[in-house]
Write a protein that binds this DNA or RNA. Structure first.
Length: 792
DNA sequence: TTCAACCACTT
DNA sequence: ACCCTTGGTTGAA
């Protein structure tokens, strides 16, 4: 027997336990095995439990049965359960299915927790933990983590990475594009022409054997490169060691579409490896945002394997962290039934729809404005007020009444959700402090930023999860409690800033925009923030002070501003832009750049007067861009529009542009799935739009349609000075007379619009269009459910 | 011309 | 494997 030190790399079931891969500090991989018997539990009448035992014994199932007691989270006490241990872990899902079908009325626990996660939790280890392992040959006698998931600056194993991609432009091979295969490893690039497919398989085999990479990072590996390699390998009868574990074949999972964050997401088919990871950049959830650093951080925190983390939403990560808390406490984890979300009745909607606090902002251009944001407001509320499915309405103690609702919250024991979130919030704030302190050239900075971003997404989803019917630890009352506290905290904060002589221009769920005239000097924001923290118990930060800031009017009701369309320039000249065309994914690049270009010019203005002074230059810039657009000389790739399909092409009832393009592609044999993105160009004539993949040669674009889009984008920027559509058309298209010759700037000092600033408060009796679902009353305080985005 | 249904998007 | 609203377009009345 000897002791091995190394990082936990991969875990999956095999035989009477788990295969465990460890990478040592020299980069050497070790293939080990650990005996492991996962368990699940059934609760109910003894008679029925006895018949389950009998059924399992009769079938000769490899199980260990015993009666025991476990804690039920919601009852807060031990209950009697039947423990079913499965000696061949891989059989657990199938055995559970048999038992649940046999006695569907029993209550089941711990039945659907992924096996790798159960194993690491049982052993007190986690993916990428640095471990000490006593082993006897391949067999693990003892494994122990020398590292903690809460470590900030942890060493990671020296991983050998092989990159796989196709030559040529980045095009989806699922749409018919085919290229040569390019493989990069340790600084060498190998080019495999697609015509020589046998040589390709032999070449890849050689590279896998020679370099023995730990990770394959691909672009379109899940839906094209790996399946194609496997197909060629079968065709030529040349085995391809994609797996490090030669006893396993590559695991294929089918493509699917699902709803997440209010929209449909398409997840392509997956190809997962054993003893090696395959990560596909094109088939990853938010990986562009937090990258491999973020994936490894979530794997360490949640116990889920990195190959899984890369492909699932962060909601799965936070859910796994809650499961981990439960297992550590010895609390039963309820089996998560997959009930379809039922349609809510009108009344239910009215009750559930009282969400975050949103103020209708004061429209127009403002100066001397500061923005204050609560950091990670909703998760902080859950921790600070102990909100969890089992603490809301608990009868174990007198409890603390929730504002507005009155329901008591248990104060004598920490809830499961707060217990899960507290260390995460703490870790995130430590990274935040480090990111601020470290010099820009510090090599650790990039990884810290990405881990910080991964935490952000974990925290964002935890609130939605509380109100999600299918969540294991979800409960609508807890969700509403968070909202109630959120509104309370924001209103209290509003009072505090108003007592200090500020005027609140806008409130939005977790942020406030406050104004104080210049005459009183620069306000002491630090002491204000401290006072708010002391009063509310939550941390609030200064997002920045604006040179100028514009809240935009509604397009349908121009007298009223809308809550989430605004832009402004901070004191350092940086811009904050929300809700306008430049932020939308379906805005063509040319129009996005026009809008941002105008804002960049305007951001040089030091205050509202500076904004107005910069307007002629911004207008001239937009005018020149519009003239190029109308002359037809803009490159088509600058005008590509992207849309995400929400349904299958044949399911569209309205012939929208996107539906037309989807039909075009479908007609050429391209299979499109809900959630997939499509690129197209607007073209003149009855065709209206053509798919990007079907454009050949120089195709003219629809100048009129694009001009309309451009004018609308310019209108958003100029609306704060009261410019209407006809004025803007005159400025941008008028060819003579207004300011002189075409393209001429207005002379300095010319009044080109009245800033709405002077008009003051918008009358609060002006109606905004009522929400379509319900005819709700509205006042200057509009109550609405909103997801929280902790400050980045 | 009006308006409801539909669709995609944002935070 | 997350909640919902707003704004714009389409096509029938």
């Amino acid at each position: 027997m000897n002791t091995l030190f190394g990082w936990l790399f991969d875990v999956y079931p095999s035989g009477d336990g788990m295969t465990v891969w460890v990478i040592d500090p020299d980069g050497q991989s070790h293939h080990l095995h650990d005996t492991f018997t996962p368990t699940f539990y059934a609760h109910g009448p003894r008679q029925e439990l006895r018949s389950v035992c009998q059924m399992l014994r009769n079938r000769g199932a490899p199980v260990t049965l015993r009666r025991t007691e476990r804690i039920d989270l919601f009852l807060d006490r031990h209950i009697e359960v039947l423990e079913i241990g499965v000696r061949i872990p891989d059989l657990l899902p199938r055995l559970f299915r048999q038992v649940a079908d046999f006695r569907p009325n029993l209550t089941y626990y711990d039945a659907d927790i992924s096996l790798p996660q159960r194993y690491v939790l049982r052993r007190g280890i986690f993916p990428l933990a640095y471990c000490s392992i006593d082993r006897d040959g391949r067999h693990i006698q003892r494994i122990e983590a020398l590292d903690s998931p809460w470590e900030i600056d942890y060493p990671l194993p020296p991983l050998r990475t092989m990159n796989l991609r196709l030559s040529g432009e980045m095009q989806n091979p699922g749409r018919g594009y085919r290229g040569d295969l390019l493989v990069e490893i340790e600084g060498n690039t190998f080019h495999f022409p697609r015509a020589h497919s046998r040589r390709l398989v032999l070449g890849i085999r050689h590279l896998l054997e020679h370099y023995d990479p730990d990770v394959l990072i691909s672009t379109y590996g899940d839906n094209y490169i790996l399946p194609r390699l496997l197909e060629l390998s079968r065709h030529y009868g040349i085995p391809l060691p994609l797996n490090r574990d030669r006893g396993k074949s590559v695991l294929r999972k089918s493509a699917s579409s699902y709803s997440s964050y209010g929209r449909v997401v398409f997840r392509n088919e997956q190809h997962l490896l054993f003893g090696r990871w395959h990560l596909d950049r094109q088939n990853a959830f938010l990986a562009n945002d937090y990258g491999v650093d973020g994936i490894l951080e979530i794997a360490r925190l949640s116990g889920l394997p990195p190959q899984t983390v890369a492909r699932v939403s962060t909601g799965t990560g936070i859910s796994a962290m809650q499961v981990a808390t439960a297992l550590r406490r010895g609390v039963l984890v309820p089996w998560q039934k997959r009930q379809p979300e039922t349609l809510k009745s009108g009344l239910d909607l009215l009750v559930a729809d009282k969400g975050g606090l949103v103020y209708t902002p004061i429209a127009g251009l403002h100066e001397h404005v500061a923005e204050l944001d609560f950091t990670a407001m909703y998760p902080s509320i859950m921790v600070h007020f102990n909100i969890s499915p089992e603490t809301v309405g608990a009868k174990c103690c007198e409890g603390e009444p929730i504002p507005e609702l009155g329901t008591p919250i248990c104060r004598h024991r920490q809830g499961l959700v707060p217990e899960t979130l507290e260390p995460l919030l703490e870790k995130r704030s430590r990274y935040k402090a480090l990111i601020r302190e470290l010099p820009e050239d510090d090599p650790r900075l990039e990884a810290y930023r990405r881990r910080y971003s991964a935490h952000k997404w974990l925290l964002v989803t935890c609130f939605g999860y509380l109100g999600y019917k299918n969540a294991r630890f979800g409960r609508i009352e807890a969700h509403e409690a968070v909202n109630a506290y959120g509104r309370e905290v924001l209103l209290r904060t509003k009072e505090i800033v108003e007592e200090r002589g500020f005027r609140v221009l806008h409130l939005y769920v977790d942020g406030l925009w406050i104004h104080k005239p210049e005459a009183s000097g620069r306000p002491d924001y630090d002491s204000l923030l401290n006072e708010i923290h002391a009063e509310t118990g939550l941390h609030i930060g200064l997002e920045g002070v604006y040179r100028w800031l514009a809240f935009l009017p509604s397009r349908t009701e121009p007298r009223v501003a809308v809550a989430n369309r605004y832009f402004g320039a901070f004191e350092d000249g940086s811009l904050k832009v929300r809700g306008i065309e430049a932020r939308r994914r379906d805005t063509p690049r040319y129009i996005k750049e026009t809008q941002l270009g105008m804002l960049e010019i305007l951001s040089r203005g030091r205050d509202a007067a500076g904004f107005c002074a910069a307007l002629p230059e911004a207008i001239a810039f937009a005018r020149q861009r519009l003239l190029s657009l109308q002359a037809g000389v803009v490159q088509a790739d600058q005008l590509v529009i992207t849309h995400r399909l929400s349904r299958r092409p044949e399911e569209y009832t309205v012939r929208t542009v996107a539906a037309r393009v989807a039909h075009q592609l479908a007609a050429t044999g391209v299979e499109l799935h809900p959630g997939e993105r499509m690129n197209f160009l607007l073209v003149p004539g009855p065709e209206k739009a053509r798919a990007w993949e079907l454009l050949e040669g120089r195709v003219p674009y629809d100048r009129e349609a694009y001009s309309k889009l451009m004018l609308r984008a310019v209108e958003s920027i100029l609306a704060p000075v009261g410019a209407d559509r006809s004025t803007i058309e005159m400025w941008l298209l008028g060819n003579a007379g207004y300011w002189g010759p075409p393209g001429a700037l207005p002379p300095p000092g010319v009044d080109i619009g009245t800033p709405l600033l002077a008009r003051g408060r918008v009358p609060s009796q002006v109606g905004i269009r009522a929400p379509s679902a319900l005819n709700r009353q509205w006042s200057d305080l509009v109550l609405r459910r909103e997801a929280l985005l902790p400050a980045a």
